[in-house]
Amino acid sequence: MTIVRKNTVNTTVSPSVSLPENSAEKYKEAERMRDVLLLLQNLINSEEATVKLILDCLYDVGSVNLINQKLRLKPLNRVMKLIARMSKPVFRTLALNWFKKNCPQLITNWLHTQVSFKNPQNTPQKVAIEVVQLEPYSIPQKQSLSQEIKNLRYQVRWLAGISIIAIAILVVTVTWLN
């Protein structure tokens, strides 16, 4: 099997894979990790169709979950899912370029941490937390806050309705012009 090096190959080496001058083992380790990086880049270039299918699956699952999590209104939820489906080709192009550029290095770094068998240095430290007793709101203050919340919810409903109508008009106009 031959590995073809392209001019656009990301040859940056992570800080954990630096080339030490005095240790032959570290040098060999860095060389082997560079080989892993080249092999991953070669794999991604030769299996581009597979990468596209993986990204499509991740986009389908991720976009639906994000929309369901952020948008509770059914009509707006459906419209956003439709928009997400239409924007999939743009995502695929951008994600593929990002994947080719960044993922071989990220995967190489992760694999290197897996085979280095070092104890993690990021042990969480205990942080002192100061607890402050809060005084409850007075009754008139609670009522004014409750009324303000109701007014804001009303405004959000209006804005959501206007947004849905505007998006629907935009979609109808675009389809009519085409």
Rank of each mutant, 00 (worst) to 15 (best):
L39T: 04
L38Y: 14
N77Y: 07
Q105W: 06
E135W: 07
S87N: 11
V127E: 08
Y137C: 13
N42T: 15
K101S: 15
R85I: 15
V79N: 03
L43A: 11
P89I: 01
Q141Y: 05
K150V: 01
S144M: 06
E21D: 12
Q143A: 10
R32Q: 08
S63W: 02
E21R: 10
I54S: 11
L55F: 03
E48R: 11
R85E: 15
N119S: 14
N45E: 14
N122Q: 07
P20E: 05
L82V: 12
T12F: 07
E135R: 15
K88P: 05
K88A: 13
E21Y: 08
R32M: 08
Q143C: 06
K118Q: 07
N97A: 15
T12A: 07
V9A: 10
S46R: 11
S46C: 14
L66Q: 11
V51E: 04
K52T: 09
V13G: 00
R32N: 05
Q105E: 12
V64R: 08
I129R: 06
Q114F: 07
P104C: 00
V51C: 10
S63I: 12
V79K: 08
V90I: 13
E135N: 12
S146I: 00
Q125M: 07
Y137F: 15
T123A: 03
L96D: 02
I54G: 10
E130C: 07
E47I: 04
L66S: 15
Q69V: 05
K28A: 13
V9Q: 06
T108F: 01
V61M: 14
N109G: 12
K26L: 12
R72K: 12
F99V: 07
L145A: 03
P89M: 04
N7S: 08
K118E: 07
L73W: 13
N109H: 09
Q121C: 02
S14V: 00
I149C: 00
P104F: 01
T50N: 14
I54M: 12
P15Q: 00
I129A: 09
S46G: 14
L40A: 06
L73Y: 13
N119E: 12
P104I: 01
K88E: 12
M33S: 05
N68Y: 02
L39S: 06
L37G: 05
C57H: 13
T108M: 03
P89V: 00
N119Q: 14
S63D: 01
V51P: 03
M80P: 02
E130G: 04
R92M: 10
E31R: 10
K81H: 00
V51H: 05
E148Y: 01
W110N: 12
L76R: 04
K52M: 11
A49K: 10
V115K: 04
A49V: 09
P140A: 09
R34L: 06
L82M: 13
T108A: 02
K101M: 13
N42L: 12
